[in-house]
Amino acid sequence: MEIILKEDIIGLGYKNDIVNVKNGYGRNYLIPTGKGVIASAAARKQLAENLKQQAAKIAALKAEAEKKAEAIKDVVLVIPAKVSATGVTYGSVNKATVADELKKKGFDIDRKIITMHDIKKVGNYEATVHFFKEVEVKVPVQVVAENEPAAAPAEEAPKAEEAAPAEAPKAEAAEEAAPAAE
C-alpha cells in the first residue's frame, strides 16, 4: 500500500514522502491518526502542487537545518555512567540522555529526532541526529565509568613533555664539558 506521509516518522520517511507500507499499518495506524493518506492519483497531483508552492519555504527550512548540523558537527559527547566491575552500565544511555548532554553544551535538540541503540556498556558509540530530509549528523558518544578519571592520560602527556626539555640542558652541559676537557 502506498501512503503519502503528512509528518516525519523516523524509520519510515519524511513529510510528503510516498512510502510503501503493509496494508494493516497504513489502514489501522497511519491513516486514522492523520499521519498519512492513500497515494491515489488525485492525492499525488495535490502533493505535486503543494510542493511547487512550498519550494521556497522548504529551501529555507533546509538551510536552517544545515546551519544547525554545521554547529553540532564537531561535538563529541562524553557521558559518565555508573558501571559494574565488568564494564556494564547500571541502566542504559539512551537518546534522552544524549539530548540532555547536548542541551548542557548549548544545543537544544529534541530527543525524537535522535536515533541510536540503547548503550549498556562502556565504549565509543554513534548517535544520528536527523535535522531534515537530507540533513543528518552523526555525533560520537563516549560512555565512560563515572568513578574512573578520564583526564589521567591527558595529564601524563604534559609530564612527559616537561621531562624532555629538562634532559636537553643536561646534554648541552655534557657537550660543553667535553671540549673543555680536551
Rank of each mutant, 00 (worst) to 15 (best):
N23A: 06
G87R: 12
L51N: 09
E161P: 05
K73G: 00
A173C: 05
Y29W: 07
E182L: 09
Q142N: 12
Y29H: 03
V144D: 10
D118F: 12
V122G: 12
P153H: 06
A160P: 12
D110L: 09
A168V: 06
K52A: 15
E162F: 06
E70V: 05
E172A: 05
A151G: 13
A178F: 14
P80G: 06
A171S: 11
L102T: 00
A150V: 15
L47W: 11
Y90F: 13
A181P: 07
G106T: 03
E126A: 05
Y90K: 04
G24D: 13
L47T: 00
E172Y: 02
K103G: 08
A174N: 07
D17Y: 04
N23D: 10
F132K: 05
V122E: 06
G123F: 01
F132R: 06
V21H: 02
E155H: 14
V129L: 03
A173R: 03
K133E: 01
A48H: 02
G24S: 03
E101F: 06
N147I: 08
L77K: 05
T86K: 12
A168E: 07
P80A: 01
D108W: 02
A39F: 11
F132V: 04
K82H: 10
G24M: 00
G91V: 02
L102C: 09
P165T: 07
A173E: 13
P80S: 11
A180M: 07
E7T: 08
G11E: 00
V78A: 15
E161S: 14
E175Q: 13
T86L: 15
V93C: 08
A171M: 03
Q54F: 09
P158S: 14
L5G: 10
A39R: 01
N28D: 07
I114S: 10
G91A: 10
R111Y: 07
Y90S: 09
A96C: 15
E155F: 14
K112T: 04
N94Y: 01
A151C: 10
P149D: 11
Q142M: 14
A173Q: 01
E70A: 07
A168S: 09
A48C: 05
E136F: 05
L47D: 02
A127S: 11
E172Q: 12
E136T: 05
A180G: 10
D100R: 15
R111A: 03
H130I: 07
S84V: 06
S92Q: 03
E167M: 00
K103V: 13
E101G: 07
S92W: 11
G13H: 09
L12C: 04
A63G: 12
K105M: 12
P149M: 01
I72W: 00
G91M: 01
A69W: 04
I72T: 08
P169W: 10
K121C: 08
G34Q: 08
